[in-house]
Nucleic acid binder design. Structure first.
Lengths: 165, 165
DNA sequence: TTGCTCCTCACGTCACGTGAGGTGGC
DNA sequence: TTGCTCCTCACGTCACGTGAGGTGGC
């Protein structure tokens, strides 16, 4: 998109945010920069692409991947679903595809009929409620686990009170 | 332990809780029963053993593994550390070895000096506080994630109110 | 004897890690 | 030219999954 530049001065546009395009020009990052910013490995970014979860917004003429802010947000979402919730990449892809479907339809929201809109909203709501339920199960497990640890600490402190050192 | 039985009547003791040993006789489970009770795969139990995380209390003369209640509790702890907190099995083993160290020392608590006891308690407390910190980071991430989902649901509901269907 | 469960190899898989060997712009 | 980062294979690894082939007690 922001690739194939009419300004032949920069073919790669690696980290350049050209002033002549105005302040709203998107900052495209090379894979190493993106990985550092996200705290993930370069290999992971390439693997997500290989698995069809993420296509970087652009490529340089040399073939280097270029990541837009939206791409970074997508990676953060992938990581949340993977590591916070324990989904595998097939499940993550399914959720992302559902998200993508929603944004596509939201795009021609103005042209849609009210019943189509209602169906869309209900569908999105159900997915969110499902996801929330899974998150809450995880939270409850973790809170129980923390409470057990706190109980152990309290028992420890009681024993410790009995000693003078 | 409860293997090598003086009663030659049952060599395998697979699921027998013999009434002649009293009600406090431990119920030893075969690997399949243990796996079902725990909700894990048989392969996982064997793998934990292979990795030195868990040694089943007994074996039948035929070589079948026998799991005591303590073994099941250990597996539950392994799973918590693995999937709730995201530790790999090397890290889980380290934590378990620390736990084991504590229980061993607690065993000759009566023979120990007060300064040894104090050191032990302080050590255990520090490990627990560390673990609790990691749990709380996870909880905070999940609560933030849940709040985002709730915000999305609320936005959805607002839009939905505007429609009549 | 027939099921059922158990055993030990041992290869497959998922989500990457880690070089191997080569290219491209300051 | 020298670093640095990027590229594409491609093999290694961790935590198992999944048969393959065989044993053992109702």
């Amino acid at each position: 998109m922001t690739d194939s530049p009419p300004t032949p001065a920069s073919k790669t546009a690696l980290a350049d945010r050209p002033a002549d395009l105005g302040p709203e020009a998107p900052a495209l990052l090379a894979i190493g920069q993106a990985a550092r910013e996200l705290g993930v490995s370069v290999r992971s970014l390439r693997y997500y692409e290989e698995m069809g979860l993420l296509t970087p917004t652009g490529r340089t003429t040399g073939g280097n991947r270029l990541y837009a802010p939206d791409d970074l947000a997508r990676v953060r979402r992938i990581r949340e679903l993977q590591h916070l919730l324990g989904f595998n990449l097939d499940e993550v892809r399914a959720i992302l595809e559902h998200d993508d479907h929603l944004t596509r339809v939201r795009h021609d929201w103005a042209d849609a009929h009210d019943d189509d809109r209602a169906r869309l909203l209900d569908e999105a709501r159900e997915a969110d409620v499902n996801l929330r339920a899974q998150v809450e199960v995880k939270i409850r497990s973790l809170v129980m686990f923390r409470d057990e640890i706190n109980a152990r600490i309290a028992r420890n402190d009681l024993l410790r009170e009995g000693l003078h050192g």
